[in-house]
């Protein structure tokens, strides 16, 4: 379908409204919004204190797969792991994107708010680059627990003053539509599903922690295939045993995520099917309390 400029601008106005943005942003973001109206999500992807695990997870998207994502659904303006542009060309690509604006900013990794030199890109502290990029974004998607809530880099003693993106934007007084997709890494279906939702119909329904309720609305435990074993009080007492893993430290009872229905890596497996515990990697508190061990092998008297 060929869009006329006029119908496009009308649609784009509706799109902006659905994202809760001011119509005055329209001229500035017109090019990027036109991309969206043509069925492609313009993405600027930046990495902070990250392990690139969420980038690798994106490449594990099943359907659409990575090749279709890159060429049919996303316009990857810049991605540190995938962009051909390197050195000066990479810096130029990022600056071109920021100057045009209107993209969905995907952030992977936490933000060092204390030791700002702990993450740099093209001679600029990441914490400052992030603010510049967020100002021109139509929405910010925080992929992974680090970007959403700080994650492992923010665990005590948190030498760099690492924080999630939402906290960093708030500290700078910058309000943007923001979506948190925790998980270590985030599940590719959570990320791709959210980007497509934003592309096709605007912001998804979010909970009080800005997480899409569609993916994070229920406890993992409630849909767990071992739920019946839990009710029968059939518990694994040691690693490698059959039974509900609750007594070994499984955090499915406090973790909101749909892993138990979805599985990982194309559904071939997931943590609990592999008889390991849920470590609560999608929880906002993930890894933050050093006293809260993942495995509780010596505490078998809880129930």
């Amino acid at each position: 379908m060929k869009l006329t400029r006029r119908t496009f601008l009308k649609d784009a106005g509706l799109l902006l409204a659905s994202l809760g943005l001011e119509p005055s942003l329209l001229p500035r973001m017109a090019d990027a919004l036109e991309e969206m109206a043509s069925g492609r999500a313009p993405i600027l992807w930046l990495q902070g204190l990250s392990c690139s695990g969420c980038s690798v997870s994106l490449l594990n998207s099943e359907s659409p797969g990575p090749a279709d994502l890159i060429t049919r659904y996303l316009s990857l303006y810049f991605h540190q792991t995938l962009s051909a542009a390197t050195g000066a060309a990479a810096k130029d690509a990022v600056e071109t994107a920021i100057a045009k604006g209107g993209y969905i900013l995907v952030v992977e990794g936490a933000v060092p708010l204390g030791v700002k030199e702990a993450c740099k890109f093209a001679d600029e502290n990441f914490s400052e680059q992030l603010l510049r990029a967020a100002r021109s974004a139509q929405a910010v998607v925080c992929t992974g627990t680090c970007a959403a809530f700080g994650g492992i880099p923010a665990a005590p003693p948190n030498l760099t003053g690492a924080a999630g993106v939402g906290a960093a934007l708030k500290q700078a007084g910058l309000a943007r539509p923001l979506i948190n997709l925790p998980g270590c890494p985030t599940h590719p279906a959570w990320l791709v599903g959210t980007l497509l939702q934003v592309l096709k119909s605007g912001l998804p329904e979010l909970d009080e922690l800005q997480r899409p309720t569609r993916f994070f609305g229920q406890l993992l435990h409630e849909q767990c295939p071992l739920f019946a074993q839990y009710q029968k009080k059939h518990f694994a007492q040691a690693l490698g045993e059959d039974g509900c893993l609750f007594k070994l430290g499984c955090q499915g009872v406090v973790t909101q995520a749909d892993c138990s229905l979805r599985g990982w890596n194309g559904g071939v497996n997931w943590c609990i099917r592999g008889r390991s515990i849920c470590i609560g990697c999608a929880r906002p508190e993930f890894a933050l309390d050093p006293q809260f061990a993942f495995f509780r092998l010596n505490e078998n008297d809880l129930l």
């Binding site: 392990c51 695990g53 690798v56 997870s57 594990n60 270590c184 890494p185 690693l239 490698g240 990982w264 890596n265 194309g266 071939v268 497996n269 997931w270 943590c271 099917r273 592999g274 008889r275 390991s276 515990i277 470590i279 990697c281 495995f295």
Partner: peptide, 24 residues
């Protein structure tokens, strides 16, 4: 990566690899 997940539980970041061996 699906192969690694078949035995590792999931990946990136495996679940079944623990001190002593594998849970599965």
């Amino acid at each position: 990566h699906r192969m690694a997940a078949l035995l590792g539980g999931k990946i990136p970041h495996t679940a079944t690899l623990v001190p002593g061996g594998l849970t599965l």
